[in-house]
């Protein structure tokens, strides 16, 4: 079970809901992924097109836990404002703190992220910050009381996979709260690798929504995350420099 604050989940795949080709495909992808946590963004309504459909209306909210993000915020204050709006929906108490500090790489601003987390924890939110893969920052965030830490594998939407597995493994080793690898995952092998390193979960969006067949990719990601988790708990052999025979060296015919 993945435990985040008071919540517990069977699935270790957290799925983003952005940029799917259409709602039908999205709904099927979400179902196939078996994700229980779905991320959303908070945006102004289009008051000139009131009947525009909304994906949230198509979901049975009893089956999902919403994880709104603060995307669009550049400061702690903006993030807190978005988080409060999200909570006012009455649908969620978790918040993904996402404060972008650089427009080109979409890397998070660590100082504003810490500040926002402190403010939101004070207000009783279940706080999941999206961070860089900085080991000390992850520890500092845990110390102030965040409920999970979400280091990026690579820049958002880049599909580059885990750029720095060493840092990620340091973060995982030291953490007493869930570590969810967020952003930059492109393929099932990336997702599985994150889980093999001991991550508690993976949050991805574009890897599924941008695939030629999003529903099929949702299933591939689900299986990869399960496989990676199984491998981690099974205990993998260490890598060796030279070969070790799998067949016995006794009873050879030519001995």
């Amino acid at each position: 079970m993945l435990k985040i604050g008071p919540h517990a989940f069977h699935s270790r795949l957290l799925l983003g809901t952005g940029k799917f080709p259409n709602f039908e495909i999205q709904k099927e992808a979400v179902a196939v992924s078996e994700a229980e946590i779905l991320t959303f963004a908070v945006r102004r309504m289009n008051i000139y097109e009131p009947q525009q459909p909304n994906f949230l209306e198509m979901l049975d909210l009893e089956h999902y836990t919403l994880l709104p993000n603060t995307a669009g915020a550049a400061t702690a204050e903006e993030a807190v404002r978005i988080a409060r709006l999200a909570k006012a929906s009455g649908l969620c108490d978790m918040i993904k703190v996402e404060i972008i500090g650089d427009a080109r790489t979409l890397l998070p601003d660590p100082l504003e992220t810490v500040k926002a987390c402190e403010m939101l924890l004070e207000e009783g939110f279940i706080v999941l910050p999206y961070t860089s893969d900085d080991v000390v920052l992850a520890r500092r965030l845990e110390q102030i009381g965040v409920h999970a830490i979400m280091p990026g594998a690579a820049p958002i939407g880049s599909g580059q996979g885990i750029i720095n597995p060493l840092n990620l493994s340091f973060i995982i080793e030291q953490a007493n709260i869930p570590v969810i690898v967020d952003a930059g995952i492109g393929s099932p092998s990336h997702a599985s690798y994150a889980m093999e390193l001991g991550a508690d979960g993976v949050l991805l969006n574009t890897a599924v929504s941008g695939a030629r067949q999003p529903v099929q990719m949702a299933q591939a990601m689900k299986l990869a995350i399960e496989a990676g988790r199984l491998a981690y708990t099974a205990g993998m052999i260490g890598a060796k420099r030279y070969a070790t025979a799998s067949s016995p060296s006794e009873g050879l015919l030519n001995s």
Partner: peptide, 26 residues
């Protein structure tokens, strides 16, 4: 303004109102 209080909240001239919702996002 809490969702349960929308009917009781009386608007005044020149107020700035934001109406937001959840949209797809990662």
């Amino acid at each position: 303004v809490d969702r349960g209080l929308h009917s009781q909240y009386i608007l005044q001239e020149d107020m700035k109102i934001e109406l937001v919702h959840f949209v797809g996002g990662g």
